[in-house]
């Protein structure tokens, strides 16, 4: 087996090289994807590397791609299938981190935390606030996959009602176990006080949240997106923030870093994080461990876990 890892330049490469030498000596590490040719049969990438026909054509022996991330929309799935290459992601490493991030967004927005923080820094002492509790609110989750499920587990003690929508409904005993109710997307938007999106980006989910869905939301409701920016029509979102007082927590952007001149960044009711919902020290350790484990599994002739293709 010969493995190539293409990692973003900001990662401490020397440190990883040292560790790799101990665990997987045949692993070659690079921050540059513009190499002429590689005879590696295993490719490890993050979402920062575009895996398209161009890259794949320069790796004629490639048999297995491991994306060290939950998302894999940087990979041309059609081309991977056509070439008969296996593809796995790591859907288990960052779900806890994302779930916590979503709850943080919800609490920050419910408690007007950003404004309070700013006022205190400006030497003011706000007495009355319109802060609200999470208890008693209805939380709508779009996409009940690994992250959606972890979010539910963490929301249960908050005494919220939980609605969800997904292409696949959970078995009844799971719905009962989690205390969740399946509803159509329009009903979820209409009934929820807080909506959080956890779907992969596909042709079907691109702009699944448009002006029509946003208009169904309660005035002042909260929308949180830690999945992919393209799921929401950004222009419609800006309109909803301005006209319906929708409050928003955003972790993902169509272009990263985004265009900071966008009107989005001038709106008071929106809070941002730089696509780090899943990135904690703990989750990065889990990504690394799971990635290594899966590549070792392939090396031993075993079926890699978390197969996407």
């Amino acid at each position: 087996m010969k493995a190539l890892a293409i990692l973003p330049g900001f990662i401490p490469m020397d440190q990883i090289k040292k560790a790799a030498a101990q665990i997987l000596p045949e692993l070659e590490l690079t921050a540059d994807a513009s190499f002429e040719k590689s005879d590696a049969d295993v490719l490890i990438v993050t979402t920062f590397t575009k895996v398209d026909a161009g890259l794949l054509s320069r790796m004629p022996n490639l048999k297995f791609i491991q994306v060290a991330s939950t998302g894999y929309d940087n990979v041309d799935l059609g081309e991977v299938r056509r070439r008969g290459i296996m593809l796995s992601n790591i859907p288990v490493a960052n779900k806890e981190a994302v779930a916590e991030h979503v709850i943080m967004f919800a609490l920050v927005l419910l408690r007007n935390f950003v404004q309070l923080n700013s006022q205190i820094r400006a030497g003011q002492w706000p007495v009355l606030t319109g802060a609200r509790e999470l208890k008693g609110k209805v939380f709508g989750i779009i996409g009940m996959g690994a992250i959606g499920t972890k979010l539910v587990e963490r929301l249960i003690p908050f005494e919220v009602g939980i609605l969800y929508n997904d292409v696949r409904r959970l078995p009844q005993d799971r719905e009962e176990f989690y205390g969740v109710k399946y509803v159509e997307l329009d009903d979820l938007m209409r009934l929820s006080d807080i909506v959080s999106i956890h779907v992969p980006l596909t042709d079907k989910t691109r702009h699944m949240i448009t002006e029509r869905q946003l208009n169904l939301m309660k005035d002042g409701a909260i929308l949180i997106n830690t999945s992919r920016a393209e799921v929401i029509d950004e222009k419609a979102l800006i309109k909803a923030v301005k006209e319906k007082g929708i409050r928003v927590g955003i972790d993902v952007y169509e272009k990263e870093p985004p265009d900071f001149k966008s009107e989005l960044f001038s709106l008071d009711n929106v809070v941002f994080s730089p696509h780090i919902a899943g990135a904690t020290v703990e989750s990065q350790e889990r990504f690394l461990m799971e990635t290594i484990a899966n590549v070792l599994r392939y090396k031993q002739g075993l079926e890699p876990q978390y197969r996407v293709v």
Binding site: G136, L155, V160, G161, F177, G179
Partner: peptide
Amino acid sequence: EDLLYMNKVARAR
């Protein structure tokens, strides 16, 4: 509709 009911059930399990 009491949308919090199923959560109460889950918490009480």
